[in-house]
């Protein structure tokens, strides 16, 4: 890795001398060694993205001939599939889904982070039965989302546990704001352990001496948490939150199973894309998916830029250390 990064700028600035300098053929070797990775990446990431984008520029089988048969073959329609998303009824549905997706993302990720950090702090403490607590906190994360959706639907049905506890009949699975709450509760329950687990790993990296030093200096527990724990666990926490952001932005199975398709109050962008695909409008579905892809990419970019989530931190550290030396 390091050979390549130091080598390539030199090669780029003096292309003529490159061949001469690369006597041992290390550059070629590096390319050779890395090519399987690039091949796999191209196959599993590059190709689907490009194929999806290409698909979004076409439309297939949307008209009938005189005998009622669907006209075969696909037509190139340029950006029509994209402009259609922002017109008429479709636009209402899109902005509704866009709002839902964003709303779920902000609310659930905030809740998950708070609860997840709390869980990590509990799991981090040495006490009797710690293994049991750790294992049980992880159970929701281990369940498949569709299954937890079914479980929560049971709880949220009209004569379910939730209403029995509240002593009030709330139609959680009917269209309306209450169904948003149901999704948020189920989603938070399911994914807080993920943040908890990653933060726990971060906590265990913090050396005990730092806390001892803080104690000697007379720092209160709150000060220790804010001044030591949070800053030191921040890199791990940000990566965990980033992962969750990317995950929630393409939320599909939980609202689909728990509340149902076609319910406006929980419709997400992925559900719109699914709806198009299931009605055989693959071009339009691909357009929705591409829009969602761009939105997710934008959110991830802003998150990394603004908060400095350091997903490739290790590599950068190496580089700067090398530069310093």
């Amino acid at each position: 890795m390091t050979t390549l990064t130091t080598e390539s700028p030199a090669g780029a600035s003096a292309p003529a001398g490159r061949r001469h300098r690369d006597v041992q053929g290390t550059g070629r070797l590096a390319v050779l060694l890395l090519s399987p990775t690039f091949l796999v990446l191209g196959l599993v990431v590059g190709y689907p993205v490009l194929a999806g984008f290409r698909e979004s520029l076409y439309t297939t089988g949307q008209s009938l001939d005189a005998n009622g048969f669907v006209v075969q073959g696909s037509q190139f329609v340029g950006l029509d599939n994209y402009t259609a998303i922002f017109h008429g009824d479709r636009a209402t549905a899109f902005w509704n889904a866009f709002f839902n997706t964003t709303f779920f993302t902000v609310v659930t990720v905030t809740l998950e982070t708070l609860i997840g950090v709390g869980m990590a702090l509990i799991m981090h403490h040495a006490f009797r039965g710690r293994a049991v607590v750790r294992a049980s906190i992880l159970v929701p994360w281990a369940l498949p989302t569709a299954i937890s959706g079914l479980l929560w639907r049971w709880i949220f049905q009209a004569d379910g546990v939730a209403n029995a506890i509240l002593h009030h009949q709330v139609l959680w699975t009917a269209d309306g704001n209450q169904s948003k709450v149901a999704v948020i509760i189920a989603e938070t329950w399911k994914t807080s352990p993920f943040i908890g687990l990653l933060v726990l790993a971060g906590l265990q990296m913090i050396p005990q001496e730092v806390y001892e030093a803080a104690k000697v200096d007379g720092a209160s527990p709150w000060q220790q948490f804010v001044r030591i724990t949070l800053p030191l666990v921040k890199p791990t926490l940000l990566v965990a939150v980033l992962f969750r952001l990317l995950d929630v932005l393409r939320m599909f199975d939980l609202p689909f199973v728990l509340i149902g398709a076609h319910k406006d109050s929980v419709q997400t962008l992925t559900m719109l894309a699914w709806n198009e695909a299931t009605n055989l409008r693959y071009g339009s579905a691909a357009a929705y998916a591409t829009v969602l892809f761009l939105y997710i990419a934008l959110v991830a970019y802003l998150f990394v830029k603004l908060l400095g989530a350091d997903i490739i931190g290790q590599a950068r550290q190496h580089k700067s250390r090398k530069a310093a030396a």
Binding site: Q157, A158, D159, Q169, L171, W172, T173, A174
Partner: peptide
């Protein structure tokens, strides 16, 4: 009944 707005066959 209001609850019937959430009924599928099995409910």
């Amino acid at each position: 009944p209001k609850a019937a707005l959430t009924y599928k066959e099995e409910d």
